[in-house]
Amino acid sequence: MGKSISRKGFLTSTTFLGMSSILPQIPIMEQNTVVEANPDLILDPDDGEVYIIGKRQARVTIKVDKRHKGIETMSLLTEDIKPNDGIPVHKHSSEEELIFIEKGTGILTFGDEQYEVTSGSMALVPRTVWHGLQNKSNEMLRMVFGYTPSGFEDYFRAIGVKPGEPWKELTSEDWQQINNKFGVVYRD
């Protein structure tokens, strides 16, 4: 008879259709673990920490992160992308990213391909995969996105300013240092 393995052991040691390299490592709770309901984790639409990013004045809202909500395994943010604006093509060295288009339409670069996205579209972006998003419409595009593990949300704190604060011009050396710190590379 073969060696016996627990359900937790099985789930943490197997792969699903060979996708273990792109799926985040999700901790599995023991069956008797008690988790307290935390009302701070219920957010209203305007809740979150807002940053204005770059000369393009993109509005990024950090909704869930390890700094304020104590969530280590994931973060959740929103970004409003103005018409004819977008997120340059880039890749992350340490995080998977989940992108959900809440409203609007755009063009998602994923690897070397481009895809039309509309409200309800979603993409799971494994670490090291090139991706970017362009709003080619006349309407605002709202992207809901998150990272696992959490931590990359600090990038937006480093490059953005709070609403009403003057924009801080970053030098190319500043950008290089911040990008290196957070493991992000932009495609030329």
Rank of each mutant, 00 (worst) to 15 (best):
R67L: 15
V185D: 11
G132A: 14
N38K: 14
D47C: 01
A158V: 02
D44L: 11
N135S: 04
N38R: 14
N32I: 02
V144S: 01
P126C: 04
N180H: 10
Y51C: 04
Y115T: 03
W167D: 13
I53F: 06
D44S: 15
G9A: 04
T73S: 15
L77G: 00
P88S: 11
I71A: 08
V50C: 15
E79M: 14
G146C: 05
D85I: 00
Q31C: 06
R127S: 08
I28R: 07
G2Y: 09
G18N: 10
I71H: 00
E139L: 04
L77W: 02
F16G: 15
A158D: 10
M29N: 12
I26Y: 06
A58L: 15
N180K: 13
T109P: 08
A58S: 15
A158K: 04
T12Q: 14
D46G: 14
E72K: 09
P166D: 11
Y155N: 02
G86K: 05
D65W: 04
E102A: 11
F10G: 07
H92K: 10
P149F: 06
Q134D: 07
F152S: 08
V64S: 05
Y186N: 12
R142I: 06
I81Y: 01
V89Q: 02
P45V: 13
E96F: 06
D44T: 09
D46F: 06
E173T: 14
P27I: 06
P39A: 08
K8H: 10
L141P: 00
N138A: 09
A58M: 15
V35Y: 01
I22D: 01
I28G: 05
W175L: 11
K55V: 13
S4Q: 09
G70T: 02
P24F: 03
V60Q: 04
S20K: 12
L77A: 08
G146V: 02
A158S: 10
G111W: 03
M140K: 07
D65S: 06
T14E: 05
T109Q: 13
V35A: 12
S137T: 12
L108Q: 07
P126F: 07
I87L: 15
R67S: 11
F100Y: 15
Q176D: 10
N138D: 15
T148A: 12
E96Y: 07
P88E: 06
G164A: 09
S6C: 06
E97I: 13
P166V: 06
E95I: 06
N84V: 05
S94F: 12
Q114S: 14
L98M: 09
L141Q: 02
Q25F: 01
F110Q: 00
E102W: 05
T14V: 14
P126M: 06
L41D: 00
L170E: 02
I87F: 12
D46M: 15
E96K: 02
V64L: 13
I87G: 04
D174A: 04
H92A: 08
G18S: 07
F16T: 15
T105H: 09
W130C: 05
S150C: 12
K168D: 00
R67P: 00
L43T: 08
F100A: 07
G9H: 01
T61H: 03
E79Q: 13
D188H: 03
S4M: 11
R67N: 12
L141C: 00
G164C: 05
E36W: 00
T128G: 09
L98D: 01
T105I: 11
E113F: 02
G106D: 05
S94M: 14
